[in-house]
């Protein structure tokens, strides 16, 4: 199983990596949406993407739109991990094609439960 973690904070990428690696995901990292897209193109199979909203160059919501426009990648699960908690913004993310929404700060069991609920991988 492959996961792509996109966040401009290296510390947050490390936190997320430490949560999903024990679940059996091989992790690739990117620091913004554009880098995330090029990483994604280079990856053969991706099961899960954890993406931040507020990032330089290309933000999370633009990234989600770009990924969901690619019909070949329909099965992958997209989880937005963000400090955004405005209902309107959350609704925007869901409409863009996000499968789940994790609000920072969060605990590892919350993220793991959400991944299980949306069927991201088998663990």
């Amino acid at each position: 199983m492959n996961a792509l973690i996109i966040d401009d904070s290296r510390a947050m990428r490390r936190v997320l990596r430490r949560i999903v690696e024990p679940l059996g995901f091989a992790v690739t990292e990117a620091g913004d949406g554009r880098e995330g897209l090029s990483q994604l193109r280079a990856m053969e199979a991706v099961d899960l993407i954890l993406v931040d909203w507020n990032m330089p160059v290309m933000n999370g919501i633009e990234f989600v739109h770009a990924v969901r426009a690619d019909t070949k990648r329909r099965d992958l699960k997209l989880v937005m991990v963000t400090t955004e908690t405005e209902p309107m913004k959350m609704a925007r993310a869901l409409m863009a094609g996000v499968d789940e929404f994790v609000m920072k700060p969060f605990t590892s069991d919350i993220l793991v439960d959400k991944l299980r609920l949306i069927g991201a991988g088998t663990f």
């Binding site: 908690t85 405005e86 209902p87 959350m90 609704a91 869901l94 996000v98 789940e100 929404f101 994790v102 609000m103 969060f106 605990t107 919350i110 439960d113 959400k114 609920l117």
Partner: peptide, 20 residues
């Protein structure tokens, strides 16, 4: 609180049935 609504509640239901 945010942790409580993060446990088990799908975001569409949060948006539909809760006010922030």
């Amino acid at each position: 609180n945010q942790i409580e609504i993060s446990r088990g509640l799908p975001p569409p239901l949060l948006l539909k049935y809760f006010d922030r």
